[in-house]
C-alpha cells in the first residue's frame, strides 16, 4: 500500500460517508417530509396542531394535518357484515355455502323451518353466527355467497376485553328475508 493509495482511500471513504450524511441531514431539515400518522388524532379532521411539529413550514393544501387524516379504503376487509335494507331485510337464505367454504369454521348458521303462506316449507336463518376471533379474512364466504348476502366493512377497531365479544350474530333482531331472493 503506497502513500497515494492510502490517502486516496481515506478521502474516498470520507466522501462516501458524507454522501450518506447528506441524506439523513437533508431529512432532518425537511420536517414536512415526515410520513408517520398520528393515530387516533387522525380520525378527526381537526387535528391538534402540536401533534405536527413540522407544521410551521407546510402551507396550503399540503398541510400534514389534512394530508394525514386517516382514509380507510372501501375494500378493506375489516369485519364481515350482513347488509340489511331499511325495512330490516337481508338476503341470506341460510343455504350454508359460506359455512361450508370457510376454512376455519368461523361461520355457523342455525336455520329454522318456516312455513310460507301457501303452505310450503322453507329454510330460513335463525342466527348467522360469525366468530371474528377465528376469521382469517380470506373472503371466500363473500365470494361464494350465491345471493350476495355478505359483505366486508372497513372498520378496523376491534379491540375488546373478552374474546367472547368477538362472536357476533350477523342477522339483526327480527329481520326477514328480502323479497325475491331465493
Amino acid at each position: 500500500m503506497n502513500v497515494v493509495e492510502y490517502i486516496s482511500g481515506i478521502l474516498k471513504g470520507v466522501k462516501s460517508l458524507l454522501i450518506g450524511m447528506k441524506v439523513t441531514g437533508s431529512y432532518f431539515f425537511r420536517p414536512w417530509k415526515i410520513v408517520t400518522q398520528q393515530y387516533p388524532e387522525n380520525r378527526k379532521k381537526d387535528v391538534k396542531w402540536f401533534y405536527f411539529l413540522p407544521l410551521w413550514k407546510a402551507h396550503g393544501k399540503d398541510t400534514p394535518a389534512e394530508r394525514k387524516q386517516i382514509v380507510m379504503l372501501e375494500r378493506f376487509k375489516g369485519e364481515l357484515i350482513m347488509p340489511h335494507n331499511e325495512k330490516n331485510e337481508h338476503k341470506c337464505t341460510g343455504c350454508g355455502i359460506c359455512e361450508m367454504n370457510c376454512p376455519n369454521g368461523t361461520i355457523e348458521i342455525i336455520s329454522i323451518q318456516l312455513t310460507t303462506e301457501d303452505g310450503k316449507k322453507k329454510r330460513a336463518i335463525d342466527k348467522h353466527i360469525y366468530r371474528m376471533g377465528m376469521c382469517t379474512f380470506c373472503g371466500l364466504c363473500v365470494k361464494t355467497c350465491p345471493s350476495d348476502a355478505l359483505a366486508f366493512t372497513n372498520t378496523f377497531e376491534h379491540a375488546v376485553f373478552n374474546r367472547t365479544k368477538l362472536n357476533k350474530v350477523l342477522n339483526k333482531e327480527g329481520s326477514t328475508l328480502m323479497k325475491g331472493v331465493e
Binding site: T24, Y27, F28, P31, I34, V35, T36
Partner: peptide, 18 residues
C-alpha cells in the same frame, strides 16, 4: 427528536407538549 426527524418520524409527542 433528532433521530426521529432524520428518520421521517415525529418522535415523542404524547407526554406533554411536543
Amino acid at each position: 427528536k433528532i433521530c426521529a426527524f432524520m428518520q421521517c418520524r415525529v418522535g415523542p409527542n404524547r407526554v406533554g407538549p411536543f
